[in-house]
Design a protein around this nucleic acid. Structure first.
Lengths: 80, 80
DNA sequence: TTTCAGGTATCTTAAATTCAGATAATCGTG
DNA sequence: CACGATTATCTGAATTTAAGATACCTGAAA
């Protein structure tokens, strides 16, 4: 199931993460720090080179302050 | 962020997936087939040896017939 | 326009994950 | 017990991922 990368839903997911990070007024460096990761980690995530795991996603929602459940609802509506 | 494996949320996620597969009355073999994967894929997923990606999760919800958004809401409540 | 700074993207290679596919173990039932 | 169905585990090989550095924007200030 490596084939989730590059799908429409994956793209929508990435777009959402970028939007939410920006809405939270955080830079990649700052978000990375909160995650205990390097900036390149966030960059890879946002450039679609890495799959986003569910637990990670919930953590991102907590850090960025968005509603994970609602986000999933939106993503579910995206045709894939 | 390899550190999502084995967390409480990850365990809850796995438990949920197993529960839902059983509720859908599917075997690992059958689910695997619907996913275009091998049975060992499902087994690894359910034994916690593999992280669950968000897009994959939504697809699982569709196949198994559960509400992905609601599931995420529940998982968000699990302390991690 | 040049310079500089903050921010983001990309590269390299070692390390870790994931996979296919087979096989083994387990469970339930006649 | 014996069997069939189901799930778990194993083994290289292939793919991904990470760290850390570095390169690449972009915009503002001089």
């Amino acid at each position: 199931m490596v084939d989730t990368l590059g799908t429409d839903r994956h793209k929508a997911l990435i777009a959402l993460l970028i939007r939410e990070r920006e809405a939270a007024k955080l830079t990649q460096v700052e978000l990375a720090k909160k995650l205990g990761q390097y900036q390149s980690f966030v960059a890879r995530l946002e450039s679609g080179q890495r799959r986003v795991d569910v637990v990670e996603f919930i953590k991102l929602a907590e850090i960025l302050g968005f509603d994970a459940s609602l986000a999933i609802e939106k993503l579910s509506e995206v045709r894939d």
